[in-house]
Nucleic acid binder design. Structure first.
Lengths: 165, 165
DNA sequence: GTCTTTCCCGACCTTCTCGGTAGGATTAGG
DNA sequence: CCTAATCCTACCGAGAAGGTCGGGAAAGAC
């Protein structure tokens, strides 16, 4: 398996926030409400949302009637940023270190060009896998997921199942 | 991180075998030789190669001067098959179960359509990620990696780096 | 017919992360 | 001041990752 429940819960949390809209609308959602809606442990969600806040993806209001809201519009939140915030560096293998200098190139660095001359050929493979993951994450925005959840929510049988779409 | 060292070591092992050719050439390589060449623990490699054998990717000859060889030509070995043999089911999240009926479609099944109506919207995200990983693995064959390793091995400085070739 | 080299196989062991809990401190509304 | 919420740090059990150990069993070498 590739991702932990931090990613799963964190994304579900963001989707719940996305249903309420972003900063412009002012309404905040308490973690308790999200924990109840998604059947997730509150104390664990606290640690997850802290990562999202540190990454600047959500904002918080403390005190009574406080809660969280999206820091930007859901259409401006791409999933690669979310997953990195939740899981840390995105790398298919331990020896891969992604240095965040440029933004377009992956810039993977493998450091066990072991003893004799030849570098590890697995580098080619992991680079491709990383590319596949990154592109699929970058291509997905939060509001896509929000809309997907609302479609599945409101009318589960209305339109034809878009499996091949 | 996404894959374990089983995948890393197993792929390196296959590359070593790929350097010697497949069944047609008859030459086998002992695990000891591979362990020495790649600086990997022999006892651990034994358990890894057992998975590859069970998956029908390598063949073995026992006894003195025995060893392993590829069961098919390296160009016929795709990395998705290799990784599944080494790591087990390929799934980005615990709740994803890939049932091996058809071969073309991913066929992911998420089973926590929790309590009230709406299904988890993360399904859309994980499906895309899985697709990205699968396509990048399917697009890579073992002999690509073998040739990549030989290029890096024999002449690290001779000809201009054929990155775009 | 041993001997030795290899593959084969299961039990064990250590370390680390995952997933989660406990218990508080801080801030704000009523 | 009391309550509802965010914040913060420490702790903890289970399970997997990564690897070791020891003993087979086959098949060629001598």
């Amino acid at each position: 398996m590739m991702f932990t429940t931090k990613a799963e819960y964190g994304v579900r949390l963001l989707i719940e926030l996305g249903r309420q809209g972003s900063e412009s609308e002012g309404s905040v959602v308490s973690l308790k409400a999200i924990a109840d809606a998604e059947l997730l442990p509150l104390a664990y969600l606290e640690r997850i949302v802290a990562k999202l806040k540190k990454a600047g993806l959500v904002e918080s209001t403390r005190g009574a009637h406080g809660g969280y809201r999206l820091a930007r519009d859901a259409s401006q939140i791409r999933m690669d940023e979310v997953i990195i915030a939740l899981e840390g560096q995105l790398a298919p293998m331990t020896c891969f270190v992604d240095e965040p200098d440029g933004d377009a190139e992956p810039r993977v660095v493998c450091h066990h060009n072991h003893t004799d001359g030849h570098a590890c050929a697995t580098k080619l493979l992991w680079t491709r896998v990383l590319g596949g993951v990154q592109s699929s994450l970058q291509a997905t925005t939060l509001d896509e997921l929000v809309r997907f959840s609302q479609r599945a929510d409101v009318e589960p049988t209305s339109d034809a199942a878009p499996t091949a779409a």
